[in-house]
Write a protein that binds this DNA or RNA. Structure first.
Length: 1032
RNA sequence: GCGGGUAUGGUGGAAUUGGUAGACACGCUAGACUUAGGAUCUAGUGCCGCGAGGCGUGGGGGUUCGACUCCCUCUACCCGCACCA
């Protein structure tokens, strides 16, 4: 009986579904294990073979853990709100809900096709009102809390109100954008609006005017991590900086905990480093500089307070609040011009052009607080409004950018750090001895930093400060397809959350998804919806990361109507034990999720501080593109030249005929036989009319237009063209054969003589096998190459070249998992995905290799079935057979735990090959192996498991573990080396002593040959490993 | 520029603590069986050399009886960040 994956897989998938075999209970005595895949966004193009890599790995691990006795949560759902669906709606006119539903069902089909063991009863979709009800609820919680730095956790805003009305804000140590302090009296006389403005400075969800990444093309603002190289990550549209009133989340409050938490999770160092960089902690000092003619102060942050005596000027960001105020009349024009210039520069321009030094002098002066020196204040866009305070003290002696700026504008440079003791140190390294620096002169940099901070604090003009690069997250999007904010504004524009009984605030139906003309969100078009008796609704919607920042908690308890996740459920499942997904979410999603999780923890809603214990980043699977080479005009020319020389040696290339004004160049001409030939693409020959022929006649030439397509068409048989030329020689008028119109010539890669005579084109990898193209399929697949002619190689084959590229439609290298499954079966496909290489490594997909796994599947099957039917026996296993099986059991167990799935597949192959050689068909051996293989190839194993006589699913079985006794060796083959080079091998009993081995080894013929005439200086015997003899 | 990673046959990749480099596959070569082969099976396959043997894990150096593995250094490629004060 042959292995028929299609039937087996269909049968068992239905069986599993009918019996709800993958349903998981929250009520179990077994230890829990939570395996999560990153939330997919259901895109319109479906999955290619690169996508399921992580899903298959996590599925194998889930099944493995289940068989090891764990209660495994392994859910799946969709991050279903998002820009692409809305863009699609704007351009094609399909409602996002509709296209999203369609894409989801296609995803589901593809996922099911692979035999993944998800508990679909727990599926969540972020666009489902029953789900986003809780996203909105979370938003309200954020709105109603502030971050207390003393308690180091989030606390209710209501507490803050009480404190303010009793003692003002002086004693509140919170993460806040509130700068001014106030007393209880001052607070109590403020009106609602004013009080709310202050509270907003404390709320974890608050509105502020921010310079945002506005993307005109998408009609929305984008988060920093949605902008790459100055253009939108999706679509690549230009992005500009623009001030807008936006909802923000005070994620900066959690910066330190986000940083500390990284030490507790089992993630790759690369990923942690990326997050650390994104959080960007730097320690230094805050300092205030007085101005010469104003009462204002400029606040700066510096990591190098030691260099303050070298501060010879200040630089403000162009957007800095004080710029307008302090600019002197005679500098006004210069500053104005500069502001205009800086404003006109897009983010992209600024980033791509960091070398150009620009800036302008305000005319104002600041006073160095430590030495009273007056220093000029400049503005320049190398200082960023959003970083630090938007102002710096410039120290050109010890900072490269300041140095370049000073050199460029001729500003003073005072050396303050003597680095002669550190010859290898760079300008910015924090080492050296202070010079020219008042009271710190002579100190080492490290001590000077502390001394200056101390002095600043003593004088009340600054203090020690820690700064983070992390910004508060933008939480508003001017789009339709997202969660509506559960917020209404009263007549004073004060936001109020809707009552919890009003949740969810459902997204109202809409037909036209374009932003309004004045840049307002689409929901603004729905006057009735927007204006309610209780106030005006927020018309922006939440960003993509809103729904995806907590979905992993909802899976624990997806149908709970009372809470975003039930207490029992979250206390049972705790956190995600294993999270598998792509590295593209390294900062965005993972950082937001961690922040929310910590907030939930503060509120006592989740027991854990970190949501994802272990994280594995699967590598990208690239495409293996194939190329064909299409002959171009130059090829035709070269070919024609060769052929013409055979007709007549006197044909010349690029020949000028005629003289004076009537002279012109033709591609080929023969002066003796009076024939002129033009070789051009067919469509270019069409303009040659009778007049053209007559022109040649006047010069005494016969004109022969030849189409390149014609050359290609007759490449293998030149005679029709030769005939044509003969006709022309006889003075007859000839025209190109219009039937040749569509002909293209393709040259096999190994037959190319001149690379410039051919054009490289991508060809669909699905019609190429081992780089040999199926030419029939090629012509069927490409309407533009219906009539192709080929220059084949010696084997009569068309050979393609290949390259590794991103898997993408435009490279014709996309391989669809559905095709793989229908051709080879899901089990085979799963195993091949794993067999490709280490899960974390990027690698190219090459369909050819799958045949090796297919052979394995058939071989494994053949241990159970021959042509005549089922052949499994109840015979007792031999020692050898047990050893083979238990070696495999041991190694597979070890390798799964190490996430080394590729070597697991190798182990299975080795084991099967060896058993096959021994013609082992014994139940006692095979039954264990069926369970061992089940996580990888669940369908075939279920079939064989039942065939072996079991009634329940193989999924409910127990994973085999090896018996060390079966692995014992009687003898060990030792490699015997001379000076580290292996020269012989010899078998010794396991219990042979070092001395015995040494003695015997030296007696070996193969070894004597090397030791003869030399001194044996040393013999190293490592028991059970090797022997090394040192001679010299 | 900074940070992280990778480098092993024609190809994908193996190699517990330093201990037989190239497992397992793809491809290729030869053969068997076949009407056929993109089926199956057998043998071979790192490179050079007829051979003995030599050389081989990106390059160079070091530690060691012994290095893909540890140390130093250089190179190439990939990823992330980037006027970050």
């Amino acid at each position: 009986m042959e292995y028929q994956p299609r039937e087996i897989e269909k049968k068992w998938r239905k069986h599993w579904e009918d019996n709800e075999i993958y349903q998981v209970s929250n009520d179990s005595d077994r230890p829990k294990y939570y395996v999560l895949d990153m939330f997919p966004y259901p895109s319109g193009s479906g999955l290619h073979v690169g996508h399921p890599l992580g899903y298959i790995a996590s599925d194998i691990f889930s099944r493995f853990k289940r068989l090891k006795g764990f209660n495994v949560l392994h859910p799946m759902g969709y991050d279903a709100f998002g820009l692409p669906a809305e863009q699609y709606a704007v351009t094609i006119g399909v409602h996002p809900a509709e296209s999203t539903a369609k894409n989801i069902s296609r995803y589901r089909q593809q996922l099911d096709n692979i035999g993944l063991s998800f508990d679909w009863n727990r599926e969540v979709q972020t666009c489902d009102p029953q789900y986003y009800k809780w996203t909105q609820w979370i938003f309200i919680q954020l709105f109603e809390h502030y971050y207390c730095n003393d308690a180091n956790k989030a606390r209710p805003i209501s507490e803050l109100r009480d404190v303010f009305s009793q003692e003002g804000n002086a004693n509140i140590n919170a993460s806040t954008s509130q700068k001014e302090t106030f007393t209880a009296e001052e607070w109590n006389v403020l009106d609602d609006k004013a009080q709310d403005d202050i509270l907003a400075n404390y709320r974890l969800a608050y509105r502020q005017v921010q310079y945002v990444n506005w993307c005109e093309e998408l009609g929305t603002i984008l988060a920093n991590d949605e902008v790459k190289d100055g253009v939108s990550e999706r679509g690549g549209f230009p992005v500009e900086r623009r001030p807008m009133l936006q909802w923000s989340l005070r994620t900066t409050a959690y910066a330190e905990r986000l940083l500390q938490g990284l030490d507790q999770v089992d993630w790759s160092e690369a990923l942690k480093t990326q997050q650390r960089n994104w959080i960007g902690k730097s320690e230094g000092a805050q300092a205030f500089f007085n101005l010469r003619d104003f009462d204002d102060q400029i606040e700066i942050f510096t990591t190098r307070p030691d260099t303050i005596f070298g501060a010879t000027f200040m630089v403000l960001a162009p957007e800095h609040d004080l710029v307008d105020k302090i600019t002197t009349p005679d500098q006004r024009k210069a500053i104005y011009d500069y502001l205009e210039y800086a404003g006109s520069r897009s983010e992209l321009q600024r980033m791509s052009d960091v070398k150009t030094i620009t800036g302008a002098f305000t005319g104002a002066y600041a006073i160095n607080p430590l030495n009273g020196k007056e220093i000029p204040i400049w503005i320049a866009d190398y200082v960023l409004k959003d970083y630090g305070t938007g102002a710096i003290m410039a120290v050109p002696s010890d900072d490269e950018r300041d140095n370049r700026f000073a050199e460029h504008f001729g500003l003073e440079i005072i050396p303050v750090v003597d680095k002669t003791g550190y010859p290898n140190a760079d300008m910015q390294d924090k080492v050296g001895k202070m010079i020219n620096s008042g009271f710190i002169t002579g100190m080492e940099v490290k001590d000077a930093i502390q001394a200056v901070i101390h002095k600043l604090e003593e004088d009340g003009i600054g203090k020690r400060q820690i700064n983070y690069k992390l910004r508060d997250a933008n939480f508003s999007r001017q789009r339709y397809w997202g969660e509506p904010f559960p917020v209404r504004f009263d007549e004073n524009d004060v936001p109020h959350p809707v009552g919890l009984d009003e949740l969810p605030v459902e997204l109202p139906p809409l037909d036209d998804f374009k932003p309004t003309a004045d840049g307002k969100a689409p929901l603004g078009k729905l006057e009735d919806w927007m204006n309610t008796s209780k106030g005006r609704r927020e018309i922006d919607t939440m960003p993509g990361f809103a729904g995806s920042s907590w979905y992993f908690l909802r899976y624990m308890d997806p149908h709970n109507n009372q809470a975003f996740v039930g207490e029992d459920a979250v206390n049972y499942w705790q956190d995600v034990d294993l999270y598998i997904g792509g590295a593209e979410h390294a900062v965005g999603h993972l950082l937001y999720s961690r922040t929310w999780h910590k907030f939930f923890h503060d509120l006592g809603l989740v027991p854990t501080e970190e949501p994802f214990k272990k994280l594995v980043n699967q590598g990208m699977i690239g495409g293996r593109s194939n190329f064909v080479y299409r002959a171009n005009e130059k090829f035709a020319e070269q070919y024609l030249e060769k052929k013409l020389k055979q007709v007549s040696q006197s044909f010349e290339r690029n020949k000028i005929i005629g003289s004076g004004e009537n002279a012109f160049e033709v591609d080929f001409a023969c002066e003796e036989c009076k024939v002129a030939i033009e070789l051009k693409a067919m469509h270019r020959l069409e303009r040659y009319d009778d007049k053209h022929h007559q022109q040649f006649e006047k010069l005494g030439y016969t004109f022969v237009p030849i189409a390149t397509e014609e050359i290609f068409n007759h490449y293998h048989n030149f005679s029709p063209i030769a005939k044509k030329i003969e006709k022309a020689l006889a003075g007859e008028k000839v025209n190109p054969n219009p039937n040749a119109k569509e002909t293209a010539l393709f040259v096999s890669q190994d037959m190319i003589e001149d690379r410039s005579a051919v054009t490289k084109l991508h060809v669909d990898v699905n019609i190429v096998h081992n780089d040999i193209m199926d030419t029939v399929a090629f012509e069927q697949s490409r309407t533009d190459f219906r009539k192709a002619v080929y220059v084949l190689n010696a084997e009569g084959q068309y050979k393609c070249s290949h390259a590794f590229e991103k898997m993408s439609k435009r490279y014709f290298n996309v391989v669809n998992p559905d095709d793989m499954v229908s051709q080879y079966g899901a089990d085979c496909f799963r195993m091949y995905e794993m067999f490709l290489g280490p899960i974390e490594q990027g690698k190219p997909w090459n369909t050819e290799g799958i045949s090796g796994v297919q052979t394995f599947m058939k071989r494994f099957w053949s241990l159970f079935y021959s042509m005549d039917g089922y052949i499994v026996t109840d015979d007792a296993p031999t020692k050898d057979e047990l050893k083979i099986a238990h070696t495999c059991i041991k190694n597979v167990n070890r390798d799964i735990e190490r996430f080394s799935f590729n070597t697991c597949v190798s182990e299975f192959m080795k084991c099967t090959n060896e058993l096959k050689k021994l013609k082992c068909h014994k139940k006692a051996i095979l039954e264990d192996l069926v369970v061992l293989l089940a996580p990888f190839a669940p369908h075939v194993c279920e079939e064989l498991w039942h065939q072996l006589g079991n009634d329940t699913s193989v999924n409910l079985s127990t994973y085999p573990s090896h018996n060390e006794a079966y692995l014992k060796e009687d003898a060990i083959t030792y490699p015997i080396s001379i000076n580290g080079k292996k020269r012989a091998t010899h078998e010794f009993p396991v219990d042979a002593s070092k001395n015995e081995i040494e003695k015997a080894a030296l007696e070996l013929e193969a070894i004597k040959k090397w030791t003869d005439g030399k001194t044996v200086r040393k013999v190293i015997v490592v028991p059970k490993r090797m022997v090394n003899i040192v001679v010299g």
